[in-house]
């Protein structure tokens, strides 16, 4: 069965999704990723979806799940590189990925993760990175 490779970079896990996911593959990713987080004690998860052209409600849910699950295990999740067309479609769909942090590219995502872990004791001054609430 196909699997999405998960790379470990220091305290973080990096996943680059290169193919269009079907549901089973996405579920596998969720499983693998959570197992990796608990095994490695990673503090952050970076998911690069810049090559993904379709995110539907199922994929959106998986991303949300990954974020909430890793948060319980004290790891933050950042989704990076979402295509404009995908973002517009998600909003129309009514899905705003609440609780998932986003960044423009891997570099900015890394910065954000470092920031999160560094400032975890002062949550009041992280205005810019406040969780994206569902505002619909």
């Amino acid at each position: 069965m196909d699997r999405i490779p998960i790379l470990k970079m220091g305290q973080f896990l990096l996943v680059t999704i290169q193919v269009d996911l079907y549901d089973r593959l996405a579920l596998n990713l969720e499983n693998d990723l959570i197992n990796m987080v608990s095994k490695t004690g990673a503090r952050g998860v970076l998911i690069d979806i810049s090559a993904v052209s379709i995110v539907d409600s199922f994929m959106g849910r998986i991303l949300g799940n990954i974020a909430s699950m890793s948060r319980i295990m004290d790891a933050e999740t950042v989704v990076v590189g979402m295509q404009p067309a995908v973002a517009i479609t998600l909003v129309e769909l009514g899905l705003t990925l609440q609780g998932v942090y986003t960044a423009l590219d891997v570099e900015k995502g890394m910065e954000l993760l470092h920031d999160k872990i560094g400032t975890i004791e002062h949550p009041e001054d992280e205005e810019e990175e406040a969780p994206h609430d569902d505002i619909d």
Binding site: V55, S57, V86, I88, T89
Partner: peptide, 17 residues
């Protein structure tokens, strides 16, 4: 256009599921 394509494919994906 790309955005409309994405919308259509996403909708199709939901319905197929």
């Amino acid at each position: 256009s790309l955005v409309n394509q994405t919308k259509l494919i996403t909708a199709a994906s939901e319905l197929v599921r």
